[in-house]
Design a protein around this nucleic acid. Sequence first.
DNA 1: GCTAGACTATGACGGTCGTTATAGCCAGAG
DNA 2: CTCTGGCTATAACGACCGTCATAGTCTAGC
Lengths: 194, 194
Amino acid sequence: MPRTSPQARERIVAGAADMISRRGLNATSIREMAKHARAPLGSTYHYFPEGKQQLATEAVRYAGDTVARMLRKELEAGPVAGLTAFLALWRRIVVETGFRAGCPVLAVSIEEPPTDEIPPAVAAAAEVFETWENLLATSLREHGVRAEQAEQLATLVVAAVEGTVAMCRAQRSTRPLDRTAAQLEALIAGAVEG
Amino acid sequence: MPRTSPQARERIVAGAADMISRRGLNATSIREMAKHARAPLGSTYHYFPEGKQQLATEAVRYAGDTVARMLRKELEAGPVAGLTAFLALWRRIVVETGFRAGCPVLAVSIEEPPTDEIPPAVAAAAEVFETWENLLATSLREHGVRAEQAEQLATLVVAAVEGTVAMCRAQRSTRPLDRTAAQLEALIAGAVEG
DNA sequence: GCTAGACTATGACGGTCGTTATAGCCAGAG
DNA sequence: CTCTGGCTATAACGACCGTCATAGTCTAGC
């Protein structure tokens, strides 16, 4: 039934994730997302009838899945290889965008609406973080790390990288990432062999 | 020369920092900041003639200085005590606001304008991060940690805590903070005595 | 070829944004 | 008591926001 471009919808989602990772959710308007994806404004409400909230939710999941897929693959070579790839991914994003882009999942996590309910986009962000943590923790456990230690290390890695990316953007430098990477790599390597 | 409330200006800044820490910079309007501080809108432009940008910059510095002051004091009892206090501070903020507030410095760091120049608020955020890093690194060095190691650990602590706070907000749970705290405390304690 | 339905084009709705301008208030200095 | 100047009150500016409605286009299946 789709007519011309079945990828139009995905283009919008991917573009939305990119824009959110740069400017944050609230500063990214639906009009701009549509224009950025070369799609008409009407199409966004055709594909995402629940509006901006739905689009943001799908953008978070899209980015989360992309990273998770990469992480799953690289972790086949062990926790250290997975960590290295994780760090390299974020380094590439930060450097290639001139410190303009970061993580859309983090961006969505820190903008709350006045309401009391959890917006679906924030819930999606929570799931993404948990997925990443679980991938790392499972790999660590499979390589002999005690369960509690594996959980803690996995959370530390995700949190440290997310925070470091934000610091790199503020400072316009990769130095925070260099430092965090050195510490995390030593820590994970030590945990795996110890 | 000030008439009634010399603290009106500071009330606006403190309120702005609080609101930015909850909703992000772009979602926080000047009108709301004024109302939140029980100040008229006109006063905002009287105290901050350069507008929202200036107000955001001062809010970032205000929050940064508050934390730095606390950190400086607690670090007198050593790096572990400082870390513990740092963790406790953010835990308190996250818990007492029902996972609604986070760090305004982080929030400002990840929202970029379309321009190429660095907005002053982002530059202020960079300075705040560096101040926090330096306080921790100095304390570590004073307790026998090698300089490079001290720098790396300091960056890791700041980044990990910032990232963890965001994760706690998304997941509506202090579990990430529990895990990160356990790892960081062990790491810093080991570095100091080793 | 025709028709159903996925998609687009267009325009409007009420609302809020950042910012500015102007006139007025009112405590303290002289 | 007057007057200066820090502060407030009020209104407006153009721009953009999220969302919706409606009419139109064009393709895939019959």
